[in-house]
């Protein structure tokens, strides 16, 4: 129902999840971010499987290693273990899933 409502009225989603990644739409990419000549937005440190963008896009990286990308047209996100995800045109930030360590009261990044 919600899916068809969004489809009919052209409401595009702003959040996507791809495995341990969260792709969040942003209004713009920070000016301090520099171009990165890659289509990989996350590497699989354990499995060696990467999250790769296919289509017209540009990846950016800030000094604190935060990744953004601009989808100039609708692009797809691929990973060997996950289904392919369609992402509409726009600017996006790439965030990693986290987990909680209850004994040290800290949060850690999930490593795929």
């Amino acid at each position: 129902m919600i899916f068809w409502f969004k489809k009919i009225f052209g409401i595009k989603p702003k959040l996507f999840r791809h495995g341990d990644l969260l792709i969040r739409k942003v209004s713009s990419i920070p000016k301090t971010a520099i171009l990165a000549s890659t289509n990989i937005i996350a590497e699989g440190e354990k499995t060696g499987h990467n999250h790769e963008l296919k289509g017209s896009h540009q990846v950016f990286e800030t000094l604190d290693k935060q990744l953004y990308f601009e989808a100039k047209q609708d692009v797809i996100l691929k990973h060997p273990d996950h289904n392919t995800l369609e992402i509409p045109k726009g600017h996006y930030i790439v965030e990693h899933q986290r987990r909680y360590n209850p004994f040290e009261d800290i949060q850690e990044e999930v490593v795929d």
Partner: peptide, 10 residues
Amino acid sequence: DDYRRMGGEA
């Protein structure tokens, strides 16, 4: 709520 409204999961 944001998680429930998420556009796509794969």
